[in-house]
């Protein structure tokens, strides 16, 4: 999974818009006849474009022949979908029960200070979008963080600095 991403799908500008829309068209085509495919299409679109601006939502609504309000309703309901441009990487600090009990809050404070970014925001250099996750299923390794699809365990502020330096 992460391999395909690195090639181009997540890149911030290397490949043109047109190529992205062409890629999206292929996805929509493959899903078109399946009932209730909107969420899967949105996942694919977000992976291709990085986020879901209103123009893109309009495009998807037209292609799937459903009202824009329905697309917008879904995008705004689910926390995984973002209408704002995101950083190159998504940095998620887990605040699930296990991670909370074992010091996840400390990591949040540390990141806020170090990267000068609020939860939900993106760093000035557009490297990281900073989010809080509610359990990423690595509770045995708490506190855990996730950068894109990569999970890091037993994170301390010091270890966090080392991890961030690698991006």
């Amino acid at each position: 999974m992460s391999e395909t991403r690195q090639e181009c799908r997540f890149c911030a500008g290397g490949c043109g818009e047109q190529a992205k829309y062409a890629e999206l068209d292929t996805v929509i085509e493959s899903y078109k006849d399946r009932e209730g495919c909107l969420i899967m299409v949105l996942h694919a679109a977000q992976e291709i474009f990085g986020y879901l601006p209103i123009e893109l939502q309009t495009y998807i609504a037209d292609k799937l022949m459903i009202p824009l309000s329905e697309v917008y309703g879904v995008v705004s309901f689910y926390s995984f979908f973002s209408m704002k441009e995101c950083g190159k990487h998504t940095l998620r600090v887990c605040l699930g029960t296990a991670c909370y009990v074992r010091g996840g809050m400390r990591l949040i404070e540390h990141i806020k200070e170090k990267l000068n970014v609020e939860v939900g925001g993106t760093t000035a250099d557009k490297t990281f979008t900073f989010e809080v996750a509610r359990c990423i299923g690595a509770c045995g390794l708490a506190p855990a963080i996730m950068i894109d699809d990569e999970v890091y365990k037993h994170v301390t502020p010091k270890y966090l600095d080392e991890i961030l330096a690698g991006y």
Partner: peptide, 27 residues
């Protein structure tokens, strides 16, 4: 067929989950 959620806890509730598979808001 696999359907992927999109980060809403309430979608674990069965009626919300089905709404989500149908491509709607998971209410």
């Amino acid at each position: 067929e696999i359907r992927i959620g999109a980060g809403a806890f309430v979608c674990g509730e069965e009626t919300a989950l089905m709404a989500s598979i149908e491509g709607q808001r998971g209410e």
